[in-house]
Structures are given as structure tokens and as C-alpha cells.
Design a protein around this nucleic acid. Structure first.
Lengths: 215, 215
DNA sequence: TAGATTGTTAATCGATTAACAATC
DNA sequence: TAGATTGTTAATCGATTAACAATC
């Protein structure tokens, strides 16, 4: 498995979603041009991305959707259900617990952890457990990925615990830069920042109407 | 106000946050080097970004934190409280309603809208109103920015209503590409995709340990 | 003043796109 | 076969970084 950059991987993810749509519509084959159109890039980009992962099509007939999906799913680890834990049972954490979107995407939220006993409840569909139980839970269940949804002030501290427990990837919602070594990847989602920059473009457009690039 | 790209704006946002921290620590001046260190870029990048917005410092004494903050706040529209509505009172929408992070960031969530009468409640701290009331509410209160947290299937349809109501910027959580004209900006946050690419890097690192670039 | 930092230009780097030969 | 699409190389584009003169 070759390591590529973030943008390429998120495009693969978009291609996969697009292909599922096309498949649902009854298509069996697809051209790079259509795929590009759907996800908003060029056909060169699509073909280049595929070629980086050794995915090939047919010179004249485009790509077979089923085969393509299978390859993308393998690359993205979708052939196995990926177990993820959520750390922090605040508003955001609980919303993610109940979020249905992950289920049909091969991602299973298996547990949530919080220090607050009032938020703990081992009998829910997805149990909310004491944070102290995380290390053993993670070890026993072979969890590698966590979503960090705790208050800023404790984010680094909790993150360090996750890393010590063996977590290898963290999706971080705290608006701080987590200090991490090479053993754990961090992806950040900063809601304030997203809204802030959106507001900038809205305000700026009133003076000079131009578009920001899409992410 | 000059229109710059998304990455520059999100760095400005990071600089602002960093400056607030430094200020809280009692600093009055700062060098590009320190700021770069804090947000994770180069000092050249910091100075370049500032120069793009005509922000200057002192050749020998760095930047005055208060003056710098004021300029960044003006650029980012922080001198005025920005009113935002949330559309969709599902798990995510309600979590955002109660999210405290926006308050001290000059962003005020003023209302939420949903079609489901069971979710509506005009008497809450932040009212949850019928979607039909959105156009008049937006007009009366001069709202330009919305967070879209509705199911995928209706996202485009609801988005079109927002645009028609005069919304100029949308932070979209639905994992689809919204079709938009130049009158409305769209920023996308796709949780599935974020988790998916994180999982890719976690899995890939087990075969070839290398780091993805940070976002 | 001497030394350190800015502001800006030029060089580098990487990602995207265009182009086109190969070929189904 | 003729025509259309891939796979890949080369060109382009834009963003980041290095370098350094200006100067406080």
C-alpha cells in the first residue's frame, strides 16, 4: 500500500461515492470524464489518481464500475469494518454517536468514553464508558482510530492518553494544534475556523464578487 | 477588502487564535518566527500572508499584538457579531446549537429551522422554527450565513431554498456536492470522508510508516 | 552602531492540467 | 477500420520557502 497525500485520498473517497451513485443508477461502466464532472475535477486528475494506485481501465471502454469500486474499497480499507471510538460525550460527541452516516460506510462507532459519571451509561446501544477503561477496551477490541470531541483545555492531555493506549489516528474537533509524534496521525476539523473563513468570503464578496476555491 | 484563497484565510484565523493565546500570556509583541512555530508554518509564510493584506510590523521589533489582532479581526469580520442560522435540528444540528465554542468567537447562532413540528420549539434559548419561516426571518434579521445539517436526500432542495431566501454562505455537512451559482459560497465538511482518509493513513502506516501532511 | 527582523523578490516545490501516442 | 478513451509525459500553474537588502 503506497502512502499518498491527503488530497488524493479524499478524491478517492469522492470517486467511491460517485461510483456508488452511478451504480445505483444502473451503470456498469464509466469514463473518467463523467467521474470528473461528478466530483468537480478534471478527467486528467481522475486518470492520474488511478494510475498512482495502479488502477487501470480500458482504452476504449472506460472503467468497470464494480471492479473500480472493489479496488477503491480495498485501498480505503472498506473491505473490513473499521471500528472507531468517540472520546468525549458532550454535545458533539453524542451527536456523532447517533449519526447514521457512518454505518453504511463501513465505519462502526463501537464505544464512547467520558470522565463524567453522569454521562456514562454502559447499557446504551453504543456504551458510554469511563475514560479509564479506554486503554483496555482499545487493546481488547483492536481499536486504532478515535474521534476526539473534548473541551480544548483537556484536549492535549486526553490525546496523550489515547496515544499511550495505542490509538494510531485521531479526528480532532478541538480548535488546538495537538502535539503528536509519528505514531499517531491527526486530522483536524475546526468548526469555528470553517465558519470564520466562510464569513470572510461572504463579507468580501459584497465588495468584490469572486469565488473561493472549493475544498 | 481583497479576496484571497481559502488556505490564506484559514491561516489568518489560526494567527488570530495564536495571538489571543500570546496576549493572554502577557505578551505585547511577537515575531513572525514565533507565530509560525505556533501554527505550524514558516516565518516566510506568516510575513507573506500579512503583506498580502497590507499588514506591516517593525523591522526590528516584530509585530504589536494588539494592533495585529485588530487588523485580523477587521479582515475576518470579527468587529461585528456575525449571526448564523442552523438548518436541520437532527443530532448534528442540535449539537451545534448547544456548542459553546462559537460564542466567544464573535459568531452567534440565532435560530434553527426544521420541517419536523416535533423538533420545533420557539421558546428555547435558541428557537427551533418551521423551515417556512426561514425566508422572512433571514430578511428581517439580515442573516447571510447558514449551517446546513439536513439529510443528504433533501440537502440540495433545502439549499436551494436558502439561496432563494438570500443566504450568501453555507457550511454544508451533507456528504454531497451542492450545485450553486456565484451568489452563494459553499464550504463542505464531510465527516465520513475525513474518517475514511484518516483510516487510510492509519492502515497504510502499518505497511510504510510515513506522515500525511496536516490540514 | 551592530544585530536582528521585516518585507519582498526570486527559487523551489508540488500539484494540476494539457496534450498526445498507444490502443481497444 | 475509424473513433474515442486511456495512461503517461511534459507544461503549467500556484503556493511555499529561501534569501537577502532595507532598516529599526
Amino acid at each position: 500500500m503506497i502512502m499518498k497525500n491527503r488530497k488524493v485520498i479524499s478524491r478517492l473517497s469522492k470517486y467511491k461515492n460517485a461510483l456508488n451513485r452511478f451504480k445505483a443508477l444502473g451503470f456498469a461502466k464509466i469514463f473518467s470524464e463523467y467521474l470528473a464532472d461528478f466530483v468537480g475535477c478534471t478527467s486528467s486528475q481522475v486518470r492520474k489518481d488511478f494510475s498512482m494506485f495502479g488502477i487501470t481501465g480500458n482504452k476504449r471502454g472506460g472503467y468497470n464500475i464494480d471492479q473500480l469500486l472493489e479496488k477503491l474499497n480495498i485501498i480505503l480499507g472498506k473491505n473490513v469494518v473499521q471500528k472507531v471510538v468517540i472520546v468525549g460525550a458532550g454535545n458533539l460527541g453524542r451527536a456523532l454517536l447517533n449519526y447514521k452516516g457512518f454505518e453504511n460506510d463501513g465505519i462502526r462507532i463501537v464505544a464512547c468514553f467520558d470522565i463524567d459519571p453522569a454521562k456514562q451509561n454502559a447499557n446504551m446501544r453504543i456504551p458510554v464508558l469511563p475514560l479509564e477503561e479506554l486503554p483496555s477496551f482499545v487493546r481488547i477490541n483492536g481499536i486504532e482510530t478515535a474521534v476526539l470531541a473534548v473541551p480544548d483545555l483537556v484536549a492535549q492531555e486526553v490525546f496523550d492518553k489515547l496515544v499511550k493506549a495505542g490509538i494510531k489516528g485521531v479526528l480532532n474537533f478541538a480548535p488546538i494544534r495537538l502535539r503528536t509524534d509519528a505514531s499517531c496521525f491527526v486530522s483536524n476539523i475546526n468548526l469555528e475556523m470553517e465558519l470564520e473563513s466562510l464569513i470572510y468570503f461572504v463579507n468580501a464578496s459584497e465588495h468584490a464578487p469572486l469565488a473561493p476555491g472549493d475544498n
